[in-house]
Design a protein around this nucleic acid. Structure first.
Lengths: 328, 328
DNA sequence: CGTCAGTCTGGAACCGTTTCCGGAATATTG
DNA sequence: CAATATTCCGGAAACGGTTCCAGACTGACG
């Protein structure tokens, strides 16, 4: 039924170990046996069984990617890039969508533990302790979260927020709201922190508004709260939230950007398609996914190596959802 | 380092085979040994090595999902649902994004062949022959493609197209364009067929317009071609394409829906957020992913069983991108 | 109490590959 | 040509489970 290394060995007239060597390091066998083996491999269409190899070597050639919500185009983009990169480096990818539920996160990880060589955790929602408990068991790279002793890929939220606030400042805004993301999100805290510190040196007041699931619905639900604060501009945790705001504001007959400016975060494709097109703090999802995989593979190659960190730039993309403050 | 079945066996004072039995079918061992084993398992935190199990049983507990483009929210939605369903049924998921490249599709499949118990192929781009060559090697369920002898989950495109055309008919449209998707897409052919057959019984002419990558850019690129045809309405292969059209038409100062009506396909969230909100033929992505996994698991359980087919309904969602024809 | 059926258990083989080890064959050197 | 160094190969063990098989034990029954 399925062709194994022994079939190849028999056909090539050599032993299984020679077949193995011929394939693993072709220099380790005589040219003629290598030729024999290769011919047999071709003839039988032999493909090594990676499961068996994994058992024997302890390396699976698989990566695990865990993320909060694949329906968020940001994560979809990151995963796509990561998967592509992983394949280029001859690795396959296990995908786990935890649906924003911190509880299943560590469970999922433990379930996949022995089936992967390492994990890429995208915006993990677990507590510091839970994550740390995993350290040493398996190589892990954190995306969108910084936590000793893990390597990580993060975004320069402070820079993005500074750019955004400068933009708003120039437009004359004095009071801005921040619609927060999940409490368990490190990126959320980081963005708020960046925003606050950017506001310190300017005559701008930042008002934090509740916490919303980082989705369109979540953003929509916060629109009324934002309006009640009387701010002239609002920054959202991410684009999805901003889009929800945009929509609900329109329903309320509030005009963006004339009456209120809106700024998102991520720069998903979608944000350029709505109208008014969303001003947002853009990031390079492709680079994030790619950097994550690269870092992970480095960590796997040398787990003892001190954890590396990559902080990727953010870039304010000014579109049509922000404008000067007008008296009314 | 890592705790194996032998460690459990030693601690429990039984043999490895008993541990195995105690875990696999608890009824097969005496209550007190079962208790011993369970205690040892808990104490050591033993988790069976699925790789080893796979080698021994031939079943991996993994599913492979292959799709053309994760950046398309339709596929992201389907994968999310499929992954969730798979986990509920105690299976993990390998993800492969082929980036719309038919060539890598079968390669990827073959690479994962022995690491999964079955494949869910979403809108596969390979030829009938290539796919058929895989039959018998591994259980496969096709999504968005019907091809003997595979089980499949498809959409009732004909119904959706009929609903759409009826809608346009009522609005007075006589000439409509169809912006095609990839040539290799079965769904594309099916949608066009459905559209044509729906048009037959009505005084409506359907003009097929080139083929575009099923993306926003692809749709945008086709806008001018559509305009040159002088149609009053255009149906796009999918929402992304429709969104691209919408955008480019706006750039050209063409008003939707006053001057031209636009209809999409899929009903991705995004389509409701743009303005004008897109009229589209909606599908239940969650159900698609779930049905796909269910079908696949049934097929895996009994490969000899005649292939099952699920044709899921489509539902026209009328929003603001369609309106009556106006003379000008 | 002996026999038998039935239950439970441990040992061993096996899944497909890798890797270590020792020996055979070949090449190198004096 | 003998002695030694080197290359190449096959056998066997190992990875961590599962499953078959045969034997030990239990209880029931005559």
């Amino acid at each position: 039924m399925t062709v194994t290394i022994k079939d190849v060995a028999r056909l090539a007239g050599v032993s299984a170990s020679s077949v193995c060597r011929a394939l693993a390091n072709p220099g380790g066998v005589r040219p003629d046996t290598r030729e024999q083996v290769q011919r047999a491999v071709r003839e039988l269409g032999y493909v090594p069984n990676r499961t068996a190899r994994a058992l024997s070597t302890g390396r699976t050639g698989n990566l695990g990617i865990v993320l909060p919500d694949l329906a968020n185009p940001f994560f979809a983009g990151v995963v796509k890039a990561a998967q592509t990169r992983a394949r280029a480096l001859d690795h396959s990818v296990f995908l786990s969508d935890i649906d924003e539920d911190p509880a299943v996160e560590t469970l999922l990880i433990r379930a996949l533990l022995r089936q992967v060589d390492g994990f890429l955790l995208c915006s993990p929602r677990s507590s510091d302790e839970e994550l740390r408990a995993l350290h040493g068991k398996v190589p892990i790279v954190l995306l969108n979260r910084r936590l000793t002793p893990f390597p990580s890929v993060t975004l320069d939220a402070a820079s993005g927020m500074t750019q955004a606030l400068l933009h708003l400042h120039v437009l004359g805004h004095k009071r801005v709201a921040y619609v927060a993301g999940p409490r368990t999100s490190w990126a959320n805290r980081e963005r708020l922190r960046g925003l606050r510190s950017a506001a310190e040196s300017r005559p701008i007041e930042v008002i934090e508004v509740g916490t919303a699931p980082p989705t369109v619905e979540g953003g929509a639900a916060m629109a009324d709260v934002v309006l009640r604060t009387g701010v002239t501009a609002v920054l959202a945790f991410n684009d999805l939230t901003a889009l929800g705001l945009l929509n609900r504001l329109r329903d309320r007959n509030f005009h963006v950007p004339e009456e209120i400016s809106v700024i998102g975060f991520d720069g998903i494709l979608l944000s350029s398609l709505v109208s008014p097109a969303l001003t947002t703090i853009g990031v390079d999802m492709e680079r994030i996914g790619q950097a994550g995989v690269d870092l992970l593979l480095e960590t796997m190659a040398d787990p003892a190596h001190p954890p590396a960190h990559r902080k990727l730039p953010t870039q304010l993309i000014v579109r049509s959802s922000t404008d000067v403050v007008r008296p009314h």
